[in-house]
Design a protein around this nucleic acid. Structure first.
Lengths: 153, 153
DNA sequence: GCCACTATATTTAGTCA
DNA sequence: ATGACTAAATATAGTGG
């Protein structure tokens, strides 16, 4: 766009494609969040780079996307998530236990010690406030429609 | 936008909201299809109108979306599992190492020591790093992600 | 409600540092 | 490859039918 008329075709040049990808992804995300804010809708998207070994990108967040997908009645994402969290708790326990052990040993030996367990960076999700309401979500009967109608409900 | 500066806030007026919704949804879909075409990515998006009994709208099509979600599900299970296990092993190693260290220190017991066990960034497993977000529309997909990196693969 | 039509705001391809 | 800048292309809030 912009300089010359847009050529709506696949960009073979990797560097150029990457730049365009990043720019447009950013713009797309912005548009999406705006739509969500303005109209109070829950939305998510998934993008699969064509490269075989690449990972999918999701928006607005992994947590939100998973939750939406689960509501989609297609995936038991919630269960998987719970399992993951359970594992995380287990890891935390182990760390705490190890820490405790170290502490005791050192104290018993009359030594100074500094034990620092940094567990920050635990997932924080950008979940819009209005997403919290269960009642907002469609109960079921997921019907995929390309929605030509565009109507509200 | 356009006439006056955009007020990025929820539109309470139903009629106005509906109009904006339709217009912006259309634009979003277009952007999505363009991203797909230009960068060769597969993308899909799901939007849930907040109204309880409404159906979600999806892009690009029911079939494509289903296929992508299936793929997403599989990836999630495998990758997540692998990653979690890898992290658990890592934590085990670190704990073992810390224990070893403390043991030596205590045994030697000749002078003061400072033992620092830094286990930062351990869990974080809740959301795999490779999970990013984005979104798209029309006949293709949309992806939105938290991923600031924006890298290609 | 749905279109078509702007006048402007926003997005972005290309370019340079 | 990343960031800033800019000119041009697009998207869209208002508006009227």
């Amino acid at each position: 766009m912009t300089r010359n008329g847009v050529k709506l075709a696949y960009i073979s040049n990797d560097a150029a494609k990457n730049v365009t990808y990043k720019k447009r992804k950013k713009g797309l995300v912005k548009k999406m969040s705006e739509l969500s804010t303005l109209c109070g809708v829950e939305a998510c998207a998934i993008i699969y780079p064509s490269t075989c070994n690449s990972h999918p990108k999701v928006w607005p967040s992994a947590v939100t996307t998973h939750r939406m997908l689960s509501h989609f009645k297609m995936l038991s994402v919630v269960e998987r998530s719970n399992r993951t969290m359970a594992q995380e708790r287990l890891v935390r326990q182990r760390i705490a236990h190890a820490d405790e052990k170290v502490k005791k040993l050192c104290e018993n030996n009359h030594r100074k010690e500094i034990t620092q367990v940094n567990l920050d960076r635990v997932p924080k999700s950008h979940i819009p406030p209005w997403l919290e309401t269960e009642s907002n979500l469609p109960n079921q009967g997921v019907v995929f429609d390309e929605d030509k109608s565009g109507g509200w409900t």
